[in-house]
């Protein structure tokens, strides 16, 4: 029983890593909290839903499409709007992304309506039995896709010039500017990359969870918790935080009842902020 919960937690954790990845990237590099993040995930999920409904494309194949669709608008949004307030205090940047989120979420509500939709996989992928543990194949596939996504972004930041530029700007923006890195472009690329990752994560999630604009606040909340849990701005931190939350929530649901799984996350967040504001594994200060 406990082993089964652990497996559930791992599968959930992989998805959580992907949910938080883009959020952490934006927070770490641009030093803003992107309230839009949850809605971008939901938008990716809707793209996958309609690709599935209209063309029969699997949500897993839709993930790269969703990523590409979100990339360009996000790039322009950062460059044209968000970039103008980056130097402003937290209150201003937070209020701006909140306003943008109101617009996007309201647009989605108007177009898609609030009722939940579900991608029906045809044929259903079934459940694997591994050493007595039930592993739903759709969750396994989505989890694997999420891990691939995280690994891809990690490779990108490690090996490509753009990735190195993003890391450089994160570590010391002024020094990076002096080295000739176009900081504004790097910010826009980071934001676009984060939106693309959010879109892809949303597509993967659509294979498992029902889709609705009202779900966006929940994804945003998870991303917060994972970032604080894993420490801000590093990809290994996101993975640790994602799996950590997945496992904690699975056990929390067992002991307190599934309806309290969400509360566990929020109470955990509050406790972490009180006692370990740099994350359980965090080392970088935030002041």
């Amino acid at each position: 029983m406990l082993a089964q919960i652990f497996v559930n937690g791992l599968l959930l954790g992989a998805l959580y890593s992907a949910i938080a990845l883009g959020f952490s990237l934006v927070w770490g590099v641009l030093n803003i909290i992107n309230i839009l993040h949850g809605s971008l995930i939901v938008l990716g999920a809707y793209l996958a839903f309609f690709l599935n409904a209209w063309f029969g494309i699997s949500p897993f194949a839709a993930a790269p499409v969703a990523a590409m669709v979100l990339f360009i608008p996000a790039f322009l949004l950062q460059l044209g709007v968000i970039n103008r307030v980056l130097a402003k205090p937290v209150l201003i940047t937070l209020t701006l992304t909140f306003g943008l989120n109101l617009m996007l979420n309201n647009a989605m509500l108007t177009v898609f309506r609030a009722d939940y939709r579900k991608v029906v996989l045809d044929p259903p992928l079934g459940v694997l039995d591994i050493a007595g543990l039930a592993v739903p194949v759709d969750r396994l596939a989505a989890g694997a896709g999420a891990i691939c996504l995280v690994a891809l972004v990690w490779l990108l930041t490690r090996t490509t010039q753009i990735g190195r530029a993003i890391v450089a700007v994160r570590m010391d923006r002024d020094a990076a500017a002096l080295m000739g890195i176009p900081v504004a472009t790097v910010y826009a690329l980071t934001f676009a990359l984060a939106a693309a990752v959010a879109g892809a994560a949303g597509a993967l999630l659509s294979a498992i969870f029902p889709i609705s604009p009202v779900a966006s606040a929940g994804y945003l909340g998870k991303a917060f918790v994972i970032c604080v849990l894993g420490g801000l701005g590093s990809i290994p931190g996101v993975v640790a935080g994602g799996f950590g939350l997945g496992i904690i929530e699975s056990y929390g649901a067992l002991w307190l009842g599934p309806e309290h799984a969400g509360t566990v996350a929020f109470v955990l967040l509050l406790l972490l902020l009180l006692f370990r504001p740099n994350g359980l594994f965090g080392r970088k200060g935030f002041e």
Binding site: V81, R84, V85, I92, T95, L96, F98, G99, L100, N101, L102, M103, L104, N105, N106, A107, T110
Partner: peptide, 13 residues
Amino acid sequence: EGVLGLLVVLLVL
């Protein structure tokens, strides 16, 4: 709500 969001964005900018 969307219009409220737009107002917020314009205000901040």
